[in-house]
């Protein structure tokens, strides 16, 4: 039965102030059931306060064959990291 159901990617916001993070996927016949399946599969141990589900078919992914052109040029440009600022202790999650 489940092989007939489309796949949905699941994103969980673990606490207020944090971004949603990809945690996995579920099978479900439609969006509402996908949310419930995501709730029952990925937040049963208090992992989250908010859920997103997205049809996996809607995800556009980069091609691994293009990795060199896509990602290697960033490898030697450390000056792009904003490591020279001092961040106050009170500021979390940056």
């Amino acid at each position: 039965m489940s092989k007939d159901w489309p796949l949905w990617e699941v994103f969980v916001r673990s606490r207020g102030g944090l971004s949603h993070r990809h945690v996995g996927s579920v099978h479900a016949p439609d969006a509402e059931i996908a949310l419930r399946h995501a709730r029952d599969t990925y937040t049963r141990r208090m992992e989250g306060v908010s859920l997103w589900v997205v049809p996996s078919a809607q995800i556009v992914a980069s091609d691994p064959a293009d990795d060199a052109a896509m990602f290697d040029p960033a490898a030697d440009k450390v000056y792009r990291h904003p490591t020279f600022y001092s961040i106050p202790d009170d500021v979390k999650h940056i």
Partner: peptide, 12 residues
């Protein structure tokens, strides 16, 4: 259950 997701729903 019909799928692992439903399995978890019912167990919950």
């Amino acid at each position: 259950a019909p799928s692992v997701e439903v399995d978890l729903s019912l167990a919950n």
